[in-house]
Structures are given as structure tokens and as C-alpha cells.
Write a protein that binds this DNA or RNA. Structure first.
Length: 668
DNA sequence: TTAGGGTTAG
């Protein structure tokens, strides 16, 4: 009866306990059964309490007790009780039992104490292949895949026969390492030894080949399988998606006989990695329409898509959803939420999450620092970086990009210089070409053009177009024609099709009233047939993303939008606005130029936002390019006229418009 | 009548 009540997953431990309490003197076997019952019904704490009670009642544990007890531990329990229970094992003399050793290796591996796990393994007699599997599995769980492969080689030397499980583990390690050579070598050995792979091993092989980019072999294994399960399909879908072949992945996904939460998440993540964010939201809705519950893995991809689209309402909805359905909010989800809020311009919400997090990894700090930086809170970003240095989490090269960005957007020259040198001196991180780009940007904006150029000349690597682009931008602001031409030519050597360069260069000539050169640049552009990337603005209304390109007529409510634009135009004129057409780059009359800037996509999006949201609501727009001078002037006034906070995220930073001014202080 | 190792996702 007790054993029945302790059935895995669907037991009734309350009833089991009632029965158990009626037994006058339960023996070892009964105690073990109860402990196993709690473990199998996800109550490892109750299992530990019962174990303590068992000892208190003078009943000695046996070989079975510890595997039952330890098997259900999560990380927290393992950290809390692992060492102590190991001491009990030693005291009661069960150290040499392989089942107990296995359980202890498991517990140490989930608490991250790989040295302790390894010590146990090293002390064991190495004949038993199951313990080899346990330690290799522990290394896989700790993401130390190279160590797994090393142990497999050792196993061969000592002539311990690998089992099917060993092969699955080591093939999986090869997949994670993207070591096709070693993986294929093992596969050949498997074939030479006439081992017939079972389903799990076949799946692991498909995953390995697909993950290493050898889709053909993966396909042929897949097609020759007698029986496939959902994992076989998912492994191949994931392989295609990770190679960027999202449409092929989707085709295969559609053919799947069944899909589980992982298959859906793989597909969603595939769209996310291909930057097809609107499709992420579409397939996410589709998944819900067939009643598949998302989990925390799914949410990370969906939140990332929301972040990139600026889909504030959808992201907020997801937060509520996660609360309601008790989705496990781990450090990955929190990091994604911080990024989401930052990319929607809500630094306060992001910081709130950051502040409440129990555990932060380097991504948490990096995301928050970068989020503060691009939103114009440079000082706060630097404070946070100082705080980070006091923790055990080490910054990496990406963290430094965020920190340098903070300095750039706030003109913090000295801080920036110091940080740049401390990268190498205190943290041993060598600046890459992006860091040099930041430094050039920092110096350039501050007007130290010669030093910026010197920096480029002394870089240990070849400067790329972004480095020269930073210099060109600075030359435009500080009107240095000679250096600007140099930078522009360097960029065009590297990227003859870079349309933005022509715009920056002609801006520079225009500012200096060199109209002849402006014309030459235009001719060059026309001759070379360079296409500018079309500007595009996104705005979310009621959870739907609306997309606008310049002069757009495709929107279903375009007539209302045009009426609103006309009204906006009149209000702007009354407020003293004059169109600024210096950044218009096509050969047309002044009147036509004014018409062009008037129809810029961010203005369309804002007009639509004013139309479709209640008075006083914040309007959030995401733009794929830099905001133009004219739009920047106009939006400042619009924020005052219509009493709205307008947040525009452009290609590199945020503009928070409110009461007629912008958070970037016109410095971007 | 009690025990061990495995494959897919951020």
C-alpha cells in the first residue's frame, strides 16, 4: 500500500505518510520506500526531513537510502546538503558502493563542484563503465565538453568498453564543441564495431552532424531511421535554423507528426536568430492557438523579438503571462527582460528587475550597463560598472563596449581614456577593433580629431569601416574637410556600396557651403548605383506592429494619417518650425525636398501614434537608421505641442523627447 | 518488494 501511494509522479504522499505512521517499527525498507516516494514526487526537502527522522529513531541507512535521497536534489538542495550527506555516507561506510558514488557525483555536478565529483570518480575502481558515464555526464552538464572527450579517450586507453550511453554523451559533447572531425571518427568506429545505434544515439548523431553544419549526413541518417521521435525531427530543424536556413527549417517543422515545446521553441528561436522578429511573434501566437504552453526558454526568444521590435505592449503582456502561469523566471529570462525594457526606452523598469535579481551573471551587468548607456544615462552606467568590479563577476569585451558607449554618449573623455587603458592593464582584455572604434568616436566627438586619427594609425589591427565612420562623423560635426575626405575614401575602399558615407560626406560639404562638391558626391552615388537602405519606422499599437517607410501609402488608415500630418504641419509652423533639408540627398527642387522630409517614416509613425493612442500616452518608435536633423527638430516641437513623451530608438541610441527637448541634448 | 549513466531549446 505504501509503495503504491509512492508511485512516481502521481503518488499521494499525504496518504502514504498516514499509512507509514501506523507501522509500529518500520524497517529500513519502509523508510527507503518513503524517501524514494518524496523524491519521485518532487519533494526533496521532505525526503531529507524523513531521513533525519529515520536517524533520530535509531534506524540505520543502507546502500539504497542515499541514491533515493540524492536523486531528486536540485541545485539549491545540492549546495545546501551535498557535503554533509557525503560525510554521512563516509561515516556509515557506504563510500565504496558504486550506486552511492554515482549519486554523489550527480549531486556534486549539479552544485557545480566538479573537483569534488572528479575526486570521487578518481578514487573509484575504474572498471565500471556506469561511473565513467556519470562523470562524463557531469562534465557535459557543466559545459566542460572538452573534458568529456578527454575522458572518453582515457576510457579507450584503459580498455573500458563504452556503452550506448557513453557514446550518446560523447557525441553530444562533440556537437556542442562543433568538433565534426572527432564526432565523425567516433561514428566510423561505431560502424566498424557493428554497434547498431539505438534511437537516442541516432538522435545524438543527427544533432552532431546538423549542429556542425553537415546537413547532408544529418539528413541521410534521418531518412534511414526506422523509427523517428520528436527529438529526431527537432534536432534536424534546429540544425537548419542555426545555419540560417529558416524557411527550410519551417518546411520540415510543418511536416512534423508531433511537436513539443522544444520543437516550437527551436523554430521560434530560428526566426529570432534570422532577425525575423515579426515572424517570431506570429509563430508564437500560432503556438498558443494550438495550446502549447510556452516555458522560460520560449520567453527568452519572444522577449528578444519584442526588444528588437520595440513591442512594448506584447512584452508587458508576456511579463503578466509569466506571472500568471508561474513560468520559472531564471537569470536568462531576467536578462532578456532587462534588455527588452532598455530597448523600449524604459530604463527604470529594467533597473527595477536588475535590482531585485538574486543572481546576476556577466550578461545581466553588461545588458544593464549598455542599456543605461544608449538611453543617455552615462554616469549611472559607469557607477554600475564600478559596482560590478566589486563582485565576483568579471567584465568581458562586450561589457567594455557598453562602458565606452556610456562615455561616448555623455562626452566623458577622461573616463573613457582611463577605462580603455584599464581594460588591458587591470583585466587583461585586449581591445578589439570595436573598442578602437569607440575610442575614435569618443575623441572625435570631443573635437580631438588629430588624436583620433593618431589612434587609428597606431591600432594593432586593420581599421574597419566603422572606425573610419566614427572619424568621418566627427569631421562632419567639427567641419574638418581634409580629414573627412580621407576617412570617406578609406571607407569607400573597404565598402564601395556604403550609402551612408555619401550622405555624411555631402553633409560635410553642405555645411561648408561647398555646393560643387556636394554635386560631385551625388554624381558619384548615381554613377555607382549605390542604394541607400530605405528608412523604416515601427510603432506598436494594441499589440500590433505597424511598419512605415518614407512616403508610405500602404497603411489601411493612410488617409487619416495624412490628415493628421497636415494638422501637425500647421501646428509646427505656428510653433516656429522650418524644414531643414540639408540632409536630403537627391537632386530635386527645394520644395520637393521639403516634401521629402515631411514624409519621413518616423513622422508618419508618430502621426499614427497620435491618432491611435489616448491623450498623454507615451509614443514609442523604432527606426532602423539614424534620425535625421529635420525629424529631430520636428519631434522636439511635437512633444511640446501635443504634450506627449515620444521615445525614438534609432540605429545607435535613444531620443527621449519631452516638452520640446531631447535627452540626447542634440548630441548624437 | 528498493538503486546508477543518455538524445532536442535560451
Amino acid at each position: 500500500m505504501v509503495s503504491f501511494c509512492c508511485t512516481q509522479g502521481q503518488g499521494d504522499m499525504g496518504y502514504a505518510r498516514l499509512l507509514f505512521d501506523e507501522i509500529p517499527e518500520p524497517d529500513n525498507f519502509m523508510w527507503n520506500t518513503m524517501i524514494r516516494g518524496y523524491s519521485n514526487n518532487s519533494s526533496p526537502e521532505a525526503a531529507v526531513s524523513l531521513y533525519i527522522e529515520m536517524l533520530a529513531r535509531g534506524v540505520g541507512p543502507d546502500n539504497y537510502t542515499y541514491p533515493f535521497l540524492l536523486k531528486a536534489f536540485d541545485r539549491q538542495m545540492a549546495i545546501e546538503f551535498g557535503g554533509e550527506l557525503h560525510a554521512h555516507v563516509t561515516k556509515f561506510g557506504f563510500c565504496s558502493n558504486p550506486h552511492v558514488q554515482d549519486a554523489l557525483i550527480h549531486v556534486y555536478s549539479i552544485s557545480g563542484e566538479m573537483d569534488a565529483a572528479r575526486e570521487l570518480f578518481d578514487k573509484s575502481p575504474k572498471q565500471n563503465s556506469v561511473l565513467w558515464n556519470a562523470i562524463i555526464s557531469a562534465y557535459n552538464r557543466s559545459k566542460k565538453y572538452a573534458e568529456s572527450c578527454k575522458l572518453f579517450a582515457e576510457m579507450e586507453e584503459l580498455q573500458v568498453e563504452p556503452t550506448m550511453v557513453t557514446l550518446v554523451l560523447v557525441i553530444s559533447a562533440c556537437a556542442k564543441l562543433k568538433n565534426l572531425e572527432y564526432g565523425a571518427w567516433i561514428h566510423r568506429n561505431i560502424e566498424n564495431c557493428w554497434i547498431v545505434p539505438n534511437l537516442a544515439l541516432q538522435n545524438a548523431l543527427i544533432d552532431m552532424y546538423a549542429g556542425c553544419g553537415d546537413i547532408r549526413t544529418a539528413w541521410s541518417l534521418f531518412e534511414n531511421m526506422e523509427a523517428k521521435d520528436v527529438i529526431s525531427w527537432t534536432a534536424l530543424v534546429a540544425g537548419l535554423a542555426n545555419l540560417g536556413q529558416v524557411d527550410q527549417a519551417r518546411e520540415l517543422f510543418n511536416r512534423m507528426p508531433e511537436r513539443d515545446i522544444i520543437s516550437w521553441t527551436v523554430m521560434i528561436d530560428g526566426y529570432m536568430k534570422a532577425n525575423r522578429f515579426k515572424e517570431v511573434l506570429e509563430i508564437f501566437r500560432e503556438m498558443q492557438s494550438v495550446s502549447v504552453r510556452p516555458d522560460e526558454f520560449t520567453m527568452v526568444s519572444v522577449l528578444t523579438a519584442c526588444a528588437n521590435l520595440g513591442a512594448f505592449e506584447v512584452g508587458e503582456w508576456i511579463r503578466v503571462y509569466m506571472e500568471r502561469y508561474k513560468i520559472n523566471i531564471d537569470v536568462f529570462v531576467n536578462n532578456a527582460m532587462i534588455d527588452f525594457y532598455c530597448k523600449c526606452g524604459c530604463v527604470e523598469n529594467a533597473f527595477d528587475i536588475f535590482d531585485k535579481m538574486q543572481k546576476r551573471d556577466k550578461f545581466t551587468w553588461t545588458t544593464m550597463i549598455n542599456g543605461l548607456a544608449i538611453n543617455g544615462h552615462g554616469e549611472h552606467a559607469l557607477d554600475l560598472f564600478t559596482r560590478m568590479l566589486r563582485t565576483s563577476v568579471r567584465p568581458d569585451e562586450v561589457t567594455y563596449i557598453g562602458v565606452l558607449t556610456a562615455c561616448i554618449h555623455n562626452g566623458l573623455i577622461e573616463e573613457g581614456r582611463e577605462i580603455f587603458s584599464s581594460m588591458i592593464n587591470t583585466h587583461g582584455i585586449f581591445p578589439n577593433v570595436c573598442h578602437y572604434g569607440c575610442l575614435v568616436d569618443l575623441l572625435g566627438r570631443a573635437g580631438q580629431l588629430n588624436e583620433a586619427l593618431e589612434t587609428i594609425k597606431n591600432m594593432p589591427m586593420k581599421p574597419n569601416s566603422r572606425v573610419w565612420g566614427a572619424l568621418l562623423g566627427a569631421c562632419r560635426v567639427h567641419r574638418n574637410l581634409e580629414m573627412g575626405e580621407l576617412a570617406a575614401n578609406k571607407i569607400l575602399e573597404l565598402e564601395p556600396d556604403n550609402g551612408a558615407v555619401y550622405v555624411l560626406l555631402s553633409n560635410l560639404y553642405a555645411k561648408l557651403n561647398r555646393w560643387e562638391e556636394v554635386g560631385k558626391v551625388k554624381d558619384m552615388l548615381m554613377q555607382r548605383g549605390v542604394k541607400k537602405i530605405p528608412g523604416c519606422s515601427l510603432i506598436e499599437i494594441n499589440g500590433n506592429i505597424h511598419e512605415f517607410v518614407a512616403g508610405d501609402c500602404a497603411h489601411p488608415r493612410i488617409e487619416e494619417i495624412h490628415t493628421k500630418m497636415e494638422e501637425m504641419g500647421r501646428e509646427l509652423m505656428l510653433a516656429g518650425y522650418a524644414p531643414d533639408t540639408t540632409e536630403v540627398f537627391i537632386d530635386i527642387s527645394e520644395e520637393e525636398k521639403e516634401d521629402t522630409v515631411y514624409k519621413h517614416c518616423e513622422k508618419l509613425a508618430i502621426a499614427f501614434g497620435l491618432l491611435s493612442s489616448p491623450a498623454g500616452a507615451t509614443i514609442r518608435v523604432v527606426k532602423n537608421l539614424r534620425i535625421c536633423l529635420d525629424c529631430h527638430n520636428a519631434i522636439k516641437l511635437i512633444s511640446r505641442i501635443y504634450k506627449r513623451v515620444i521615445v525614438v530608438r534609432d540605429k545607435t541610441r535613444f531620443h527621449h523627447f519631452s516638452s520640446g527637448s531631447c535627452s540626447c541634448k542634440d548630441y548624437w
